[in-house]
Amino acid sequence: MSFNRNEKSGLLFSLPALVIAFGFSIYPLIKTIIYAFSFTDEKGVIVERAGIENFYELFTDPSFYYSLLATLKFAVITVFFSIVISLFLAILCNEKIKGIGFFRTIFSSSLGVSISAAASIVLFMFHPSLGVVNEIIKFFGGIPLNWLTDSKYALITVAISTIWMNIGFGFLVITAGLQNISSDIDESCAIDGAGYFDKLFKVTLPLISPSIFYFTITTTLKAFQSFGQVDILTGGGPNNATNFLVYSIYKTAFSSYRFDYASAQGVILLIIIILIMLFKSKLEKKVHYQ
């Protein structure tokens, strides 16, 4: 196969990106799949073929189902509230109100906060004895809660930190969708005598559905891959209440040195993400694109 000069130049310029993609995406994926069907020692060296033994162990392990259920709960909570809050703030800031630019800056500020910084702030706020949240509860005569050490509240606390981090991005995405709506549509609604909520639910939301859909998919994928905030806030506890799939993979591989079993979990996570993307492609047909 021969290449002309332009094709050779294109391949040469693409080579660094191809090397990075292979080294950090394709090769680890292939190695994970190989490990999932093998037995490894504590150094990660393959000692023999395992067939589907790792997957059989995985699907007969109750802790895997607890981890999967915790991940699903976390994803539902974070995605739902991230969308609702971001949408509310975006619609609010789309109104022509004096000084609204300041609030746009505030609402989008969490986009520039790293996971470690956000988790550290939440850790301070929900501290059982020094936290601001418990101080407010005590001020109103309530009983302070163990937000991070009680299995009833730990997942909610981690979800709060994740929702806060998601809001900035969601606010910008949905605001961009709102500002792309033509002023002619607003004038037509005013001429037709459409009320505020009729216009919102029958015109505005359908027109910004691509932005909402994009934010929903990205937030869902991020929820299934959450790690940093879990590691800082709860370490997967208490009682595995926040032992989400990615964190479970990390602990299995680098605490228990079960690289084969961790790889099997990684393959399951990959299948879940593929299913989400297939669902996305089906659902996208119902999205209103102008």
Rank of each mutant, 00 (worst) to 15 (best):
M1R: 06
S2C: 11
G10Y: 00
L11P: 01
S14I: 04
S14T: 07
L15Y: 03
A17D: 07
A21I: 06
G23R: 06
S25E: 14
S25F: 13
S25C: 14
I26F: 11
L29D: 13
T32H: 00
I33L: 07
I33A: 10
Y35I: 08
Y35Q: 11
F37V: 09
F37S: 05
S38Y: 04
S38I: 04
F39G: 09
E42P: 10
K43V: 11
G44T: 09
G51S: 05
Y56W: 14
L58F: 12
Y66R: 15
L68I: 08
L68W: 06
L69P: 05
L69N: 13
F74R: 02
A75S: 09
V76S: 04
V84G: 08
I85Y: 09
I85F: 11
F88K: 00
A90P: 09
A90E: 05
K98M: 14
G99H: 03
I100Q: 10
F103S: 12
I106Q: 12
F107M: 15
S114P: 15
S114Q: 15
I115S: 14
S116L: 15
A118I: 13
S120W: 11
L123S: 15
F126R: 07
N134I: 05
E135P: 12
F139A: 15
G141P: 13
G142M: 03
N146A: 14
T149P: 11
L155M: 14
L155A: 13
S161M: 07
I163K: 00
M165K: 02
N166A: 13
G168C: 02
F171Q: 04
F171R: 01
L172K: 05
V173C: 03
I174D: 01
A176F: 00
A176Y: 04
A176N: 01
S182M: 06
S183M: 08
D184F: 01
I185K: 06
I185A: 10
I191E: 13
G193H: 05
A194H: 09
F197I: 08
L200F: 10
K202A: 13
V203W: 12
L207S: 14
S209N: 09
P210T: 14
S211R: 01
I212N: 02
F213I: 06
Y214L: 15
I217F: 05
T218V: 08
Q225W: 09
D231S: 00
L233C: 05
T234F: 02
G235F: 00
G237A: 06
P238W: 07
P238N: 03
N240Y: 02
Y247K: 06
S248I: 03
Y250A: 04
T252V: 07
R258L: 10
F259V: 08
D260P: 06
V267T: 02
L269S: 03
I276M: 04
I276Q: 00
M277I: 12
K280E: 10
L283P: 03
